[in-house]
Amino acid sequence: MFSDALRESVDLSLFWDYREVMLSGLAFNFHVFAASATAAIALGLGAALLRVAQALPFRVLGTLHVETFRNAPDYIMLVWVHFVLPLLLGAALGTRIEFHPFASAVIALGLVYSGYYAETFRAGIQSIPRGHLEAGRACGMSERQILWRIVMPQVVRRMLPEGLNQLVSLFKATTIVSLITVPDLMYRVSMVTATEMKPLPLYTGAALLYFAVVFAAASLVRLASERWRRRILA
């Protein structure tokens, strides 16, 4: 009994039979990932700039954004964005709005991870010595020039290791989009399981495939950030 089950789970030929379906599912994970990563980084930078702003209302708004989305579970945000946000927008605009599952997935993951990115950006921005800003001002640079020519290049270098780790986490989070019927790898696995009635090789195959992708990405990040650290601290 045990050895049969073991052989069956190690025998991934059923997963291999469906390789095209599975890979096109994995492609959806990458699409969701790319779109929500772009949204998260852009929103995160915006929220971080609000948090370090001079005016109090901006700071409050930035803090509210960070504390809400950083503390929200991905899954509840996903469900909320998919089922509640269209109703609220529809009521505000006076029309009926529905989100495509893909759009909901990107918005939800983008919002949650923008909370994490905002903190990373803020830590990076606040680690820039005041003297650098004052030097920029003394040379007659405008605030915008100081931000893009002096602050951001250093921020990006400092936050790169953590920022890349967060990208890996974001990719892992994309596996839950199947729950609002985005046809990603997990969605394909559950569909195929429903017809084949053999969860063992299918879920094991999916777990190994995700593991391979994430492990490879995380190892690359580790390698890259060690090099970066050595170069920055040297």
Partner: peptide, 11 residues
């Protein structure tokens, strides 16, 4: 560490 939590849960 490298397997997403949802995948582990289903697994």
């Amino acid at each position: 560490r490298a397997t997403p939590i949802f995948v582990q849960l289903m697994w």
